[in-house]
């Protein structure tokens, strides 16, 4: 169990209403300096967040540099968030920064999965509703969002919305479960499959390797 369970929480939300933010904008390649999952959060949105990336001079116009928004735990964003390269660093970076949920019009597919297995809640809602939330959040960092995974509902100010999420994803997130342990419970089924398949397709198992 390596993820923190997510049930219901309230916190600040940073609006970043751009469509198609790809994983390289979330964490540029050049910011990935080690073989590991940590030391990444400084590089989050580096190209936008810093005027001078080398010297780490903050760009005062970027949302996470505005007063109060550095503590955001929810990101509000446009369509197709996390598209592009499948690098999971994008999710690890957000997680290390402290982001617990991303609310978007839609997500890159691999990114969505990566969120779930790393304990970040990806929420898809109607883009108009995201825009409303973003407007409200942008007015004052103290305008907090409440997300309730159990009830599948989020609310901020007078805007509220239900959201859909698959039962498996929900279980992983609610319980902070590791997907590998869950699958290994089915070990006997995997073994039985392989025994059968080996007879049908022997070249897969003992080819000329």
């Amino acid at each position: 169990m390596r993820n923190t369970p997510i049930t219901r929480f309230t916190g600040r939300a940073a609006p970043l209403m751009i469509d198609n933010i790809d994983t390289d904008q979330i964490i540029p390649s050049r910011e990935i300096k080690s073989v590991g999952r940590d030391g990444l959060s400084d590089g989050l949105f580096a190209a936008w967040r810093y005027n001078d990336e080398q010297a780490r001079h903050p760009n005062p116009d970027f949302i996470l540099n505005k007063p109060g928004f550095a503590q955001a735990i929810v990101l509000l964003t446009g369509r197709n968030f996390g598209c592009g390269s499948s690098r999971e660093h994008a999710v690890w970076t957000l997680k290390e920064y402290g982001i617990r949920a991303v609310v978007a019009g839609s997500f890159g597919e691999i990114f969505f999965d990566n969120c779930v297995r790393n304990g970040i809640l990806p929420i898809i809602i109607d883009i108009k509703t995201v825009r409303k939330l973003a407007e409200h959040a942008g007015r004052d960092a103290d305008n907090e969002i409440t997300i309730d995974l159990e009830q599948q509902h989020l609310a901020m100010g007078d805007t509220g919305s239900g959201f859909a999420i698959g039962a498996y994803a929900k279980r992983l997130l609610l319980e902070g479960l590791d997907p590998i342990d869950l699958t290994l419970k089915d070990q006997s089924k995997i073994d039985a499959f392989e025994a059968r398949d080996r007879r049908d397709r022997p070249w897969i198992y003992d080819g000329p390797v």
């Binding site: 499948s86 690098r87 999971e88 999710v91 691999i110 297995r117 790393n118 997907p179 699958t183 392989e194």
Partner: peptide, 20 residues
């Protein structure tokens, strides 16, 4: 198909993946 690193761990540890 392309997967994330954690899925790769899952794939290697179990020789399977859960897919929609």
């Amino acid at each position: 198909w392309g997967i994330g690193s954690s899925q790769a761990e899952h794939a290697m540890a179990t020789r399977s993946l859960r897919v929609q």
